[in-house]
């Protein structure tokens, strides 16, 4: 464990807590893409298949359980919770996310570290996580104004993978045979997708103005 990875995991955790706070405090999920949340639940469920077979550390197991439980809770909330469900921007959240699932699974079958059930699903989860934010970014463009908590949620979500990139660079130089190129390339794509969001987020912070994405 290095400081970059720990900071990345904490930033990821913060993003989930900010989202839970937004939904709980405002009893609303307006501006949040249910499709992105469903993709994240799938990412965690397919990545942590080894949750009960391989014990790495208490921290690792606890964090996996937290990520799985929180992502499922958010999807449940947006689908079932009466008050929250009504605030969902159903007509704006129309990204065909099943295409992302199909594409990532096809890629995972072709490009993986080992042609085993667990490794194919691990690669699938890595590819899917890289593009899972797309429905959310599309929804953001369509809904124009972004409330603060949603903006912060997306900012922390993007920042966590950027910290993981530093973690991979650090591990590359400090560990003998460390090669994580599938996660690395996907991480670069994932962080790249946030580039324009980061730009407008920085502008709104600099000008102390409301976050506005160009329509």
């Amino acid at each position: 464990m290095n400081i970059f990875r720990f900071a990345g995991d904490m930033t990821h955790l913060i993003s989930i807590l900010v989202l839970l706070l937004k939904i709980y405090a405002t009893k609303s999920c307006s501006g949040i893409s249910l499709k992105t949340q469903e993709l994240y639940a799938l990412v965690f469920l397919t990545r942590y298949l080894d949750l009960f077979t391989d014990f790495i550390s208490v921290y690792n197991t606890v964090m996996k359980l937290v990520f799985i439980a929180s992502s499922l809770a958010i999807v449940w909330c947006m689908r079932m919770h009466g008050l929250v469900k009504r605030s969902y921007d159903k007509e704006l959240d129309t990204f065909r996310h099943y295409l992302l699932v199909a594409g990532c699974f096809a890629l995972a079958v072709l490009v993986n570290e080992k042609f085993t059930f667990q490794e194919i699903f691990w690669a699938f989860s890595i590819y899917l996580e890289a593009v899972a934010i797309l429905p959310q970014l599309v929804l953001l463009q369509r809904s124009g104004n972004v409330d603060n908590l949603t903006g912060q949620y997306i900012f922390f979500l993007g920042a966590y993978r950027a910290l993981y990139l530093l973690n991979w660079i650090y591990r590359y130089f400090t560990e003998v045979r460390f090669s994580r190129w599938i996660a690395c390339v996907s991480g670069i794509v994932q962080t790249g997708l946030y580039a324009d969001f980061f730009y407008y987020y920085f502008l709104s912070w600099k000008n102390n103005a409301k976050l506005q994405l160009p329509a």
Binding site: D50, D54, I56, Q118, W122
Partner: peptide, 10 residues
Amino acid sequence: LPKGSHHDEL
């Protein structure tokens, strides 16, 4: 790390 799973990251 246990055999097989070389994924120690989240």
